[in-house]
């Protein structure tokens, strides 16, 4: 009897995670529905101006989406190659002792609070970039993206490394026995075999960059800007939510509802990336 009660309590705790998901979706959808009663969905998705707090408000999510994807792209340009090369190095070349030291240190990097990364981007990286790129504004996508890239290197490197180490040793032996160098083995045999797992690592890194808030809120500016130039400032979805939350919008106003519509958009994007990563990893596991 007591056993059963314990089990039920434990089950309720586990089930609470489902309740949280339902609550998240519920709150976002509930407030967004109120928003979409005032603003047609089609306008939200196609209008190219986002000025919800102006006297003459416009509600096009595109500039925010653009800012989000642009910072993510910059981050990926930094973290993609570096993370991949580091993963190949750690998985195929590094001596076990080096790996034992480097991996925990990389983990340490993910323990740095994002607000500190924001400080670093605004007050260290931007001034540095300004020396190289004349006329670079104090808030810009480039600096925020680069720092975000540094932030997600550990994720991409560590998850890619896991995928590559899961490749059976027999394949490496087969390649080495043919006279391939370790480099050739790494890039022509191990990496292609682990490619779904590595792709999943990249997608998870992207998903993390998309949802990252503080670095962009601090260093990329709060100006919605439909641009492809990373030297310009551009607000992301997350930066917009922070901006609104810092002000004091009355509960139930359309301005208040905008952050939920923006949040729902963000959740959907990350959800798509996560499903993609899930699918890729399932494919990888199927193969090995």
């Amino acid at each position: 009897m007591r056993e059963k009660a314990v089990e039920i309590v434990l089950f309720l705790c586990a089930a609470s995670s489902v309740v949280i998901t339902i609550a998240i979706v519920g709150v976002l959808v509930y407030e967004s529905l109120a928003f979409f009663r005032s603003v047609p969905l089609i306008l939200f998705l196609t209008d190219t101006v986002w000025t919800p707090l102006f006297a003459n408000p416009r509600y096009g999510i595109l500039p925010l989406l653009n800012g989000t994807l642009l910072t993510t792209l910059v981050a990926l340009c930094v973290a993609g190659p570096l993370g991949l090369v580091a993963a190949v190095y750690l998985s195929e070349f590094a001596a076990p002792r080096v790996r034992e030291i480097v991996k925990p240190t990389l983990e340490l990097l993910s323990g740095v609070p994002t607000v500190v990364y924001g400080f670093f981007a605004l007050l260290f990286v931007t001034p540095l970039l300004q020396k190289v790129i004349p006329g670079l504004p104090g808030f810009n996508v480039l600096s925020a993206g680069i720092v975000m890239g540094i932030m997600i290197i550990p994720y991409i490197a560590s998850l890619s490394e896991d995928a590559m180490r899961a490749v059976p040793q027999g394949l490496r032996d087969g390649s080495l026995a043919l006279g391939a160098t370790r480099l050739e083995t790494a890039f022509r045999v191990v990496l292609p075999t682990a490619i779904s797992g590595v792709a999943a690592a990249f997608v998870l890194g992207i998903s993390r960059a998309v949802g990252e808030t503080m670095v962009v809120a601090i260093a990329a500016g709060q100006q919605p800007n439909l641009t492809l130039d990373p030297r310009e400032p551009a607000a992301t979805i997350t930066a917009y939510i922070v901006q609104v939350a810092l002000g004091d919008l009355p509960h139930g106003s359309i301005g208040y509802q905008t952050i939920f519509a923006a949040g729902l958009t963000l959740l959907l994007i990350t959800l798509i990336f996560n499903i993609l990563a899930f699918w890729l990893r399932a494919r990888f596991r199927e193969a090995y």
Binding site: G174, A177, L178, P192
Partner: peptide, 16 residues
Amino acid sequence: LRARVGMVFQKPNPFA
């Protein structure tokens, strides 16, 4: 050396 001395393993290990 390995180009001159090839090897076949116990478990077939074709590449993907």
